[in-house]
């Protein structure tokens, strides 16, 4: 790809991803409200919130480490939007697909959490410090099952000779489900379930909103952030939601429907892209919206123990099944 091409495609993905993130946030809030028998905010509410935050005063507290406090919102936005560039979008390959793979995406997904934690520590508020510590503990607990799920898929693909390993495009181009035996299917289902459990944790949504916990530590990490900086974190969250849900789709459901409908050319691409977005929406709805309406907040020790013992055990069991499948099926 030429530099110019990367440039305009990158711009399209970034703008599209940002808008999509906000629209999905609107759907999330509307649907959550409907499930609680409320009318809920209009779909464009996230845009209104963002617009309002931009006209508000932005305060940097006196006790804060000013440069760190100011830099972190930008880092969070940059990292979560960069992930979008490394993800394939349905029929379209990733803009920077040749420059990074699944491992890079995993690391980039961790950066906004680290940025929020650092911003929290830098803000000089005890509440934010508590929130930041919790964020780091959460990060350490869900990272392992997340890595197991991704590596299980990647490893099985590489044994099937699908290369290059870890390339998200290769993963998206050859869905695993049909290529493995019954044991492998069970293993994959388990890994997919683990990834769905990790998704709300990665996004700090209820029941994993422990670092923010408005009713208990007053917004935690975000307690001192206001105005433009808060808007940036808001945007980062929207983009990260899309990125995380897209990762789940790419790993476990990278199917298109254009072939089934017998479409070709631009029409097929459009339909597949749309279908991809619908799948992302379904993942978000299942793993974020429904869960956050149905559950209450967990405690940090429950989350740490749950992810380290139970979820990790389940994920490793899934991985072992996939290994067994490799021995049986080849």
């Amino acid at each position: 790809m030429s530099g110019l091409q990367i440039l305009w495609q990158g711009a399209a993905v970034l703008v599209g991803g940002g808008l999509l993130g906000l629209v999905y946030k609107g759907f999330d809030r509307k649907l959550a409200a409907r499930m609680q028998a409320r009318i809920g905010p209009p779909l464009r509410q996230p845009f209104l919130d963002l617009g309002k935050l931009l006209v508000k005063e932005t305060v940097v507290p006196k006790d804060a480490v000013a440069w760190l406090f100011r830099a972190m919102p930008f880092l969070a936005v940059a990292a979560s939007f960069t992930v979008l560039l490394y993800l394939p979008w349905g029929p379209f390959p990733a803009v920077l697909g040749g420059y990074g793979d699944a491992i890079l995406v995993l690391y980039l997904l961790a950066v906004p959490a680290v940025a929020m934690a650092l911003g929290g520590f830098a803000s000089g508020s005890p509440l934010a410090t508590v929130g930041a510590q919790r964020e780091i503990v959460m990060l350490m607990s869900y990272e392992f099952p997340l890595a197991v799920a991704v590596i299980g898929v990647v490893w099985r693909l590489s044994t099937l000779g699908v290369g290059p390993a870890f390339s998200l495009e290769a993963i998206a181009a050859s869905p695993l489900w049909a290529q493995v035996g019954p044991l492998g299917v069970i293993g994959l289902a388990i890994l997919a379930a683990c990834l769905l459990v990790v998704t709300p944790a990665e996004l700090s949504k209820i029941p994993f909103d422990i670092p923010e916990a408005e009713t208990e530590i007053a917004g935690g990490l975000m307690v001192e952030y206001s105005g433009t900086y808060l808007a940036l974190f808001y945007l980062a969250d929207a983009a990260k939601t899309i990125a995380m849900a897209a990762l789940v789709v790419i790993l476990f459901a990278p199917y298109g429907i254009a072939g089934l409908l017998g479409l070709k050319g631009a029409g097929a691409q459009a339909v597949d892209l749309l279908f991809h977005l619908v799948k992302i929406f379904i993942v978000m709805f299942a793993a974020v919206t429904t869960v956050r309406v149905a559950m209450a907040r967990l405690k940090i020790d429950q989350v740490a123990r749950g992810f380290w013992l139970q979820i990790t055990a389940v994920a490793v069991a899934g991985l072992i099944l996939i290994v067994l499948d490799r021995m049986v099926v080849g």
Binding site: A33, R38, G40, P41, Q45, D49, E214, G219, S226, L230
Partner: peptide, 15 residues
């Protein structure tokens, strides 16, 4: 349901 009007209760005066 004040969220209909975009009114939201926040946890900190900064927001």
């Amino acid at each position: 349901d004040v969220e209909r009007f975009g009114i939201k209760l926040v946890g900190t005066p900064r927001h």
